[in-house]
């Protein structure tokens, strides 16, 4: 029989540690914050739990999550994709052109638009690998090139002659509150989780991002892997843009703002909040999803509470800063627990 104040046996410590580690994860922290704020907004913000608001919240979150995932798959390599908004808009406009002007069937147009997104992403990856420069510089340049070319070719015209199958997809309600866009996002997130957890390519991506030289020595073709990551980012950005096209009922050049810059804040917030390391090598698909959902929910709740539209941006900035600091504390705690 153990004494009341005796230290726990090694076996008990082993059993408790995974639970303690779980409580220290970003995912648990984000889930707890989501529950906390949901209760807070549900009680204090009029209309937060109304079916329309829940539907709109899910729809907006689904697109923000997708944007976050598009950035996450490049952050894995320790790089960035500032051009993901521009790539997304190019893909959406291309899809609109193929349907409206070229007369293609919409499923084929979507496939070709996704292919264009992947192709533009692979251009980013190829230049990054060949030049040896950081992808921040490369994608900053291609952001202007892709967007400028699109504006030049389309003269900023929108495409709204899209089939109802596509446009109604953004407005359909499943059991009154769920948008089908959310289903698409969940499917893509599950595929990414499968990629990173259960495939050799996913593990190669993580290894190349963690330590490129070591991965190279282990036989990983790091350059090829980096190009695939950028290609994946472009394709996911295209999915996000097509979802936005369904939500807006049209493919419009301004859907991601000037040069696609409107997507950058959600693109950074979601993976960073979710625990994806900016230095590469570690990824959290669930964390990215929860991070994007938390930010979207906070925006919705704060808008409903009428705290002032201009405070929301400050609040989101504070949240990002807090997340980085909390993440640092978490890692310090984990380090200490390993030492003890």
């Amino acid at each position: 029989m153990a004494l009341p104040d005796s230290p726990a046996s090694p076996a008990t410590r082993q059993a408790k540690r995974p639970m303690a580690r779980y409580f220290l994860t970003n995912e648990f922290g984000l889930a707890a914050l989501i529950v906390l704020f949901a209760v807070l907004f549900g009680v204090t913000a009029q209309g937060f739990l109304s079916p329309f608001n829940l539907f709109a919240l899910g729809r907006t979150a689904s697109i923000n999550i997708m944007i976050g995932l598009a950035m996450m798959v490049v952050i894995v390599t320790g790089g960035l994709n500032l051009a993901l908004g521009a790539i997304g808009v190019c893909a959406a406009i291309f899809c609109g052109f193929l349907i409206q002007d070229a007369g293609l069937a919409w499923p084929l147009a979507i496939v070709l638009a996704l292919a264009l997104g992947a192709a533009l992403g692979s251009i980013n990856g190829w230049i990054t690998v060949r030049s040896g420069l950081h992808s921040f510089i490369i994608t900053l340049a291609t952001m202007s090139i892709f967007f400028g070319a699109m504006i030049f070719l389309t003269r900023a015209q929108s495409y709204r002659g899209l089939p109802p199958e596509l446009t109604s997809f953004g407005r359909i309600k499943i059991v009154e509150i769920v948008s089908p866009l959310l289903v698409v996002t969940v499917v893509v997130a599950l595929l990414l989780a499968y990629l990173y957890r259960l495939t050799a390519l996913g593990r190669e991506m993580l290894a190349a991002g963690a330590k490129a030289e070591a991965a190279e020595l282990s036989g990983v073709r790091v350059g090829r892997v980096f190009i695939i990551c950028h290609m994946l980012s472009g394709a996911i950005a295209a999915v996000a843009a097509l979802m936005l096209t369904a939500r807006n009922g049209a493919a419009i050049p301004s859907m991601a703002g000037q040069l696609g810059q409107d997507w950058l804040l959600p693109a950074f917030l979601a993976p960073v909040l979710g625990g994806t390391l900016l230095t590469g090598g570690r990824v959290s698909v669930l964390g990215t999803c929860l991070g994007a959902f938390l930010v979207t929910m906070l925006t919705s709740g704060l808008l409903l509470m009428q705290i002032g539209e201009f405070w929301i941006q400050s609040f989101l900035g504070l949240l990002l800063l807090a997340a980085v600091l909390i993440d640092k504390s978490r890692r310090m705690l984990l380090d200490r627990s390993k030492l003890s």
């Binding site: 329309f52 608001n53 709109a56 907006t60 301004s254 859907m255 009428q306």
Partner: peptide
């Protein structure tokens, strides 16, 4: 455009029942 759309959705949830809107995008 996305910020404006989100604000409009929120205002509807808050009980606003008529809108004068400068479109963030004439189509979008």
């Amino acid at each position: 455009l996305s910020q404006q759309n989100q604000l409009l959705e929120s205002l509807l949830s808050q009980g606003y029942n008529g809108f004068l809107i400068f479109p963030g995008d004439s189509v979008g």
